[in-house]
């Protein structure tokens, strides 16, 4: 039987998660790895929105903020478990994405960019201004998920960083699997069709407004869960999670890796997560190098790193 590109992507991802720890010199790298997977999850959401459906969002960190603060606030105010709080956050994100998406997804290109940007900034502003509730700019503590001690009781003992490495890695695999299912499904085709030509998509019966909204809501849930994971792993969260720079980071990771492909998204997440960690050695030059990498990749690999490399090797193979 022929192996589909979906299976290849999932196998590569699983292999990466399993093999990488053998090269980790210290437990710190598990934390970086977990961060890569969490960012990767949010970026897979952007791939669905931007890569599949062709819609730009410069405010998706707003949903990450909602997911993160749901984990901080819901246990304290509603008395629910922090895990349930993450699910509640995803639901709230979906509802808000639905309400916000309906009006703004009628906009095109840069106009959609500025509208989504406005949404993200509003969320970040509420989180940092409503100090009595959210702890303000200094942030707020988050309860322990408790899953690690359950596993421990079952005889599987992991350090905290190992646990989060594995847990966020598996969540990413599930997220990637769902996104890959969508790509070749009727819905995914309709998204890619409206991405290619909105007017032609309409004439084959695609309800463009509804399809765009679906992509927006699904990608919002991805961002929300990524935000929740970030809060749960760090046991602490600040409004920066919802900030403009975080939104830009998500889009940049997606585009850098190659916005059409899930594997590209994860690759983009690796570059932009590991690079700043590596560059802390050159603290002085960190920003310059980061900016330079963003520019160079986009100038010389327009479609992103992964599609460009794939094309290169295919060209070689023939």
């Amino acid at each position: 039987m022929r192996i589909s590109s979906k299976q290849i992507t999932l196998l590569v991802l699983l292999a990466l998660i399993a093999v990488a720890p053998f090269f980790f010199p210290s437990s710190f790298y598990y934390r970086v790895g977990a961060l890569v997977f969490i960012n990767g999850l949010a970026v897979v959401g952007i791939v669905i929105l931007t890569g599949y459906a062709g819609q730009i969002s410069l405010g998706h960190a707003g949903f990450a903020g909602i997911g993160a603060y749901a984990c901080a606030l819901a246990p304290a105010h509603l008395g629910i478990h922090v895990g349930l709080a993450a699910i509640l956050g995803a639901l709230i994100s979906a509802v808000i994405a639905y309400l916000v998406g309906r009006p703004i997804l009628r906009l095109h290109g840069y106009y959609l960019g500025v509208a989504s940007l406005g949404f993200g900034i509003l969320v970040a502003m509420v989180l940092s201004n409503e100090g009595q509730l959210t702890g303000g700019p200094d942030g707020i503590a988050v309860n322990d998920l408790g899953l690690r001690s359950v596993l421990n009781d079952m005889g599987l003992s992991l350090t905290n960083s190992e646990f989060w490495y594995a847990f966020s890695g598996l969540t990413l695999v599930v997220g990637a699997w769902l996104a890959l299912n969508l790509y070749n499904s009727p819905t995914g085709r309709a998204w890619r069709a409206l991405h290619g030509s909105e007017v032609a998509a309409r004439t084959v019966g695609v309800d463009v407004a509804r399809l765009k909204l679906q992509a927006f809501v699904i990608s919002a849930v991805y961002a929300s869960i990524a935000g929740s994971l970030l809060a749960l792993q760090n046991r602490f969260i600040t409004p920066e999670v919802a900030g403009f720079m975080h939104s830009i980071e998500m889009v940049t990771m997606a585009v850098l890796g190659g916005v059409g492909s899930v594997l590209g998204a994860i690759f983009g997440a690796i570059i932009l997560t590991v690079l700043p960690q590596a560059l802390t050695v050159f603290a002085e030059h960190e920003m310059m190098v980061l900016g330079l990498v963003m520019m160079l990749v986009m100038i010389f690999m327009r479609e992103g790193v992964v599609p460009t490399l794939l094309r290169f090797f295919r060209g070689r193979g023939e």
Binding site: N181, P186, G188, R189, G196, S197, V199, V204, G205, Q214
Partner: peptide
């Protein structure tokens, strides 16, 4: 008005959108 990034077959399948369309969650899973 062709869907340039899709294959020829996918372009034709897109014409079946109304017939093949189902719930997004079914597609996702």
């Amino acid at each position: 008005q062709i869907f340039q990034q899709m294959t020829v077959l996918e372009n034709a399948i897109a014409g079946y959108h109304l017939k093949e369309g189902g719930h997004v969650l079914a597609d996702m899973l």
